[in-house]
Nucleic acid binder design. Structure first.
Lengths: 151, 151
DNA sequence: TCTGAAAGGTGATAACC
DNA sequence: GGTTATCACCTTTCAGA
């Protein structure tokens, strides 16, 4: 695992806050010149610390009336793979996590409407017991990953 | 709700894929000049379609051994607010959603270790019944929000 | 709402410490 | 690992359609 110093964390914080920031401005914020921050950012990208840069889109603002989480306790390994395959194939699935706990998969979805979500949940029923939670509101919609405390 | 045309969706797709792309390159991809895409992007930002731009960070790569979801069925309105307040105050909480379904809140957390997570879950116990799911792996870690099908 | 041109700012690289 | 210097390219602004 790559070792990250104070400046790396300032860079990580700044780019989580505004991924479009230029290298010069980024350098200003961490008291380094542009070429120096550029090479640090490259290093963070190559180490897999920075996975990519994305615009955050508001699902509701682009026509998704429904946001939700689907939990599934699958019947076994074969079913778990089948669920992952369905999650992979459905673009309305934004995330699919295999978890330990009451469910095997936690799937994050958006949908145009409840009826648009229905066929997907029905399909999941072949491989487990889907339990759907629909988002009313998000008191914390997104937050940057903070610097960890010492282990 | 703002009306989005084909070009807007090409822009949304491109910026979800790479938020650091320059306006000139973005213009190339959507067959527009740089000033034209710039003004469209501004419009998307001002309409709240684009909420911001973020570097995606791998929690495991920066020292978070634990990623998880905590579901809580709270006792009532007072408790639900108390949970939201705790989620807001804890930086390891990346998201807090109020949902309809078996739980009232779905909280996404990272933690340095299981023992680092424990006090937070304990604190939630004052306001509801937390059920924790720990992420083994993420077959779909992140996916861009696609263009909705016609409603 | 888009294009094209001008000016200043930025990103990438090289040479050096 | 860092800085300074250089140049090509990009962003921004504005006039015009």
């Amino acid at each position: 695992m790559i070792q990250l110093d104070d400046i790396d964390w300032q860079i990580i914080a700044a780019l989580q806050d505004d991924a479009r920031m230029g290298y010069r401005e980024l350098g200003r914020q961490v008291s380094l010149t542009a070429p120096a921050v550029t090479s640090r950012v490259r290093r963070l990208e190559e180490a897999g610390v920075i996975l990519g840069y994305s615009a955050r889109i508001d699902p509701a603002a682009v026509g998704y009336g429904i946001e939700g989480f689907i939990h599934i306790a699958s019947g076994g390994r074969r079913q778990s793979y089948a669920i992952a395959a369905q999650a992979e194939a459905e673009p309305r699935v934004l995330e699919d996590h295999r978890v330990a706990g009451q469910s095997d998969h936690i799937i994050r979805v958006v949908a145009e409407s409840l009826s648009a979500l229905e066929p997907f949940v029905d399909a999941l029923n072949d491989d487990g017991r889907p339990v759907t939670s629909l988002v009313f509101s998000s008191p914390k919609r997104w937050s940057p990953i903070p610097r960890p405390q010492a282990l």
